[in-house]
Every structure is written in C-alpha cells, then in structure tokens.
Amino acid sequence: MSADAKVYIKGRAADAHEAHHHVMPISTYLKVFGALMVLTVLTVVVSYLDLGPLALGVAMLVAVIKAAAVIGYFMHLKFDTRFHTFVFLSTLLFVAIFFTLTFFDLKTRDMMNQTWDSHAYARDAGLDQKPALRDTRPLTAEEIEHLKTHGHH
C-alpha cells in the first residue's frame, strides 16, 4: 500500500477513474429495439391462436426474452459489474420463494385429510353453492332468464 495513494476503493488502492464508461454503438440499440418489436408482434399474434394451457407458458417465455434484452442491453447489466447482476438475480430468487411457498399452500390445501373430503361433505350438505364462488362464475341460463324478467337497473 503506497503511503501516498490517496484513493481507496473497497480497501484497495485504485486510480482516480476506476469506473470505465462502457458505450455501445447506436446500431446495437436499434438491433435490440428491432428484436423487441418482433417479439411483441409475435406474442400478440400467438395470443389469437387457441393454445389452451400452453398459452401462459409461451407468453411468459416471450416476456422473459424481451425482459432479458431490456435488462442486458438497455440497462447495461451485461457490461456492468457482476455484483449488480447478483443483486438483480437474488431479488428474483426471493420473488420465486414468495410465489412457490404460497402456491405450495394453495395447491395442497385440504389434501391431508385421509377420509374426510371437505368438498364432498359440502356437496351432500348442499352447501357447495357458497355465495362468493357462485358469484364469480359465468351466468347460467336460468339466471339470464331471471335477469330478463326482473332486469333491474
């Protein structure tokens, strides 16, 4: 450690301008923008096809690719210190923790009851028409009929 080194970064002597400025050519920006436009058009077109359960997966895949492009090039993460990428990815890790454990609960609710199935019990006790659940499903024919006769504004 030279005695007169005035400048220290993270405990190591460093020259004055430690951070070099990374500048990309304009053409790269335009290429990335082009890719984003193509992907946007693609995801809109795909949404008109009837892919069923796959639709969510495809849409998310395209969104992730677009996001990677924006983060990597527009936000310079590809050319930045690796710690910033670490911060970004660890954030995604904690978002993933939040999602997976919450969904693990939602998907395995009432599964441990060996013989007693609360839904079956509810059905034969005529209780499965809970006001809230019934509200949010689409209209049945007789409800439409009811609306026609009593249509209230």
């Binding site: 400048v7 970064i9 930045d80 911060v87 970004f88």
Partner: peptide, 15 residues
C-alpha cells in the same frame, strides 16, 4: 474519495 467511488455507489443504490 473520488468520482469513481461516488458513481459506483449511486449505481449500486439504484439497483
């Protein structure tokens, strides 16, 4: 101590 340190601090804070 120098603008390099300040800039990297600001960038990390933003991330």
């Amino acid at each position: 101590d120098n603008s390099g340190q300040q800039e990297s601090a600001a960038k990390l804070g933003m991330w």
